[in-house]
Simulated scan of single mutants.
Amino acid sequence: MFTDKAAVCPVHASADHPKIPPAKIGVLLANLGTPDGYDYWNMRRYLNEFLSDKRVVDYSAWIWQPLLQGIILTKRPFSSGAAYKSIWNEDAGESPLLTITKAQTAKMRELITETHGDRVMVDFCMRYGNPSTRSKVREMIQAGCQKILFFPLYPQYAGATSATACDQFFRVLMKEKWQPSIRTVPPYFEHTAYIDALAKSVERAYGLVDQKPDVLVASYHGVPQRYLMEGDPYHCQCQKTSRLLKERLGWGDEDIVTTFQSRFGPEEWLKPYTVEEVARQAEKGRKRIAVIAPAFSADCIETLEEINEEIRESFEEAGGEHFTYIPCLNDDDLHMRALTQVVSENLQGWV
């Protein structure tokens, strides 16, 4: 039932016709997701939803689900919960990813309103956890959004990120009586404004250290090597991101190395693995390194805990001396202007 105060009956309709709010356009940002808390049951619910997704783990359910529901979901909520606890935003009672995504949405809403007024509604959802894709699509339709631009916040496309976010969006639309017109934003890894924001974050970080790092490690979230062979473009888009970043900075090939993190399960994933490569760099005499995570639009468990703790530790144990983590672009003004530019380009013809 529509609840918008500006809702009215259509012209020439009978008095008992349902009221319809003024037509709007929705921009729905989507990120991976977050547990509601780091206790055992919140972590178990979140991990169950995440690891049951066939886009994330595509093994046969006959093999995978007994393992997941038994050993994995008995033990992993404890270790994952401890990792989340170490980075949790206790003041807000939420994960850093949720805090940052709220800030990103608020800044984009402000920028979009400056250009398009209140005709365009900006909000965000999570693929796993809350706020759910279903709840936010419902809110947008109730508010009168007859067109929705769906924006997965992943610079590079991968089946386990962009595709599963879109899958969920499409599933939600299947439940709607009146489906809005939709568009999905393609990967933006080679967008000039994004590369420029990425490069300036590197320049800013390098300007804060006494001595320039010997190498920049561009660490991307990993996927199984098999996915590349099956046609997923993620690996190629990551490599191109690093190349464009290197060219924008005016660096040589030896100044940046591309790696992949967050390996899970027994099969081979995209290489080199970040945790091993940083140790190799230290052993080669590169005692000062910086690490950036260009696949993440916002800092999260994989950056704040894995990079800044586990990967840092691997580097230092191998003899590394100075480790610099360059934060994700988060709600940095330059980043938000870049994302808003991507949105504006994809809204052409609608506004």
Score class of each variant (00 low, 15 high):
Y194P: 12
M140P: 12
T133C: 10
R119Q: 05
E190K: 07
K136V: 09
P187I: 09
F169Q: 03
D123T: 15
E114P: 03
G117M: 09
G129L: 11
T161R: 06
V172S: 10
A165K: 01
V122R: 02
S135H: 02
Q168P: 08
A193G: 12
A193T: 13
M174T: 08
A199E: 08
E114G: 12
D123C: 04
D118S: 12
K177E: 15
Q168W: 10
R183Y: 03
E203R: 08
P187L: 05
M174L: 15
P131T: 00
T164I: 12
P152Y: 13
F124A: 05
A197R: 03
G144D: 06
D123M: 05
L149E: 01
H191F: 11
I182E: 02
A165G: 02
S162Y: 08
P155M: 04
P152D: 00
P180C: 06
L153D: 01
V122F: 10
S181Q: 14
W178H: 15
V172F: 02
I148Q: 06
Y194E: 02
T184V: 15
Q168I: 13
T115S: 14
V122T: 03
F170N: 08
P152Q: 03
R171C: 13
M121A: 06
R171M: 15
S201T: 13
H116F: 13
A158L: 14
C166Y: 10
S181H: 10
N130Y: 10
R134N: 08
M140K: 01
Q142Y: 06
V172P: 03
D118Y: 07
R119L: 07
K175Q: 13
V122P: 14
P186T: 08
R134H: 04
P155A: 10
Y194W: 06
S162C: 13
K177M: 15
M121I: 04
H191V: 11
E190Q: 11
D196V: 07
A160G: 06
F169P: 00
S132R: 02
I148M: 10
V137G: 00
I195L: 15
V122I: 01
